[in-house]
Amino acid sequence: MWKYDKKLQYPVKIKNPNPKLAQAIMSQLGGPDGELGASMRYLNQRYSCPFGEITATLTDIGTEELAHMEMISAIVLQLTKNLTIDEIKKSGFDQYFVDHTTGIYPVSAAGVPYTMAYIESKGDLLTDLHEDLAAEQKARTTYDNILRMADDPDVRDVIKFLRQRELVHYQRFGEALRIAQEKLNAKNYYLFNPEFDVKQREETLKNKPKKF
């Protein structure tokens, strides 16, 4: 289960509205490499994960991504406060506005609604961890692109925080991959799938080295 903590992970305080920028940043909520997808990826992958260190990592990073969803939503909300209809039409935000007003609905910058087709949960530890490492880099690239487009220091400060988190997650997933490879047959860790080939997995767990 989860508990809600009534605060953001990092403060979002934006003074000036900017609907065009809001539409770009929205992609990190509902786009292909956004925080919603990140959260769903890790939280779904963890159930069949056989190693505690990696299950814990997936659970905790998946949970942090939920907090990042909330931060992106706060940015979009604050960037679209107190707009006139003229500002909405001129900025191009009218395409979002007509369906969602200034409510928060996860879509990509191009308006494509969020889909679980963006992510994978493959039921194979090594495959999933490689997907996770790539996902963190893709999110980092998207944040880089947002930083190329955003001038407002209030926005840049939060985006830089989120970008930095992608690097930390990449580091932790790298360690998770190393742990997985050490716990499996180190000479051939593609020998079997530890999430499916149960008998082999039990033998591996029996013979696992004590310290990592």
């Binding site: 992970q9 260190e53 814990a56 990592t57 905790d60 990073i61 942090e64 930390v168 932790r172 360690e175 998770a176 742990i179």
Partner: peptide
């Protein structure tokens, strides 16, 4: 949180 995440891979 950051320490917890580190402890996940360095328990």
């Amino acid at each position: 949180y950051e320490t917890a995440l580190f402890l996940d891979t360095h328990p």
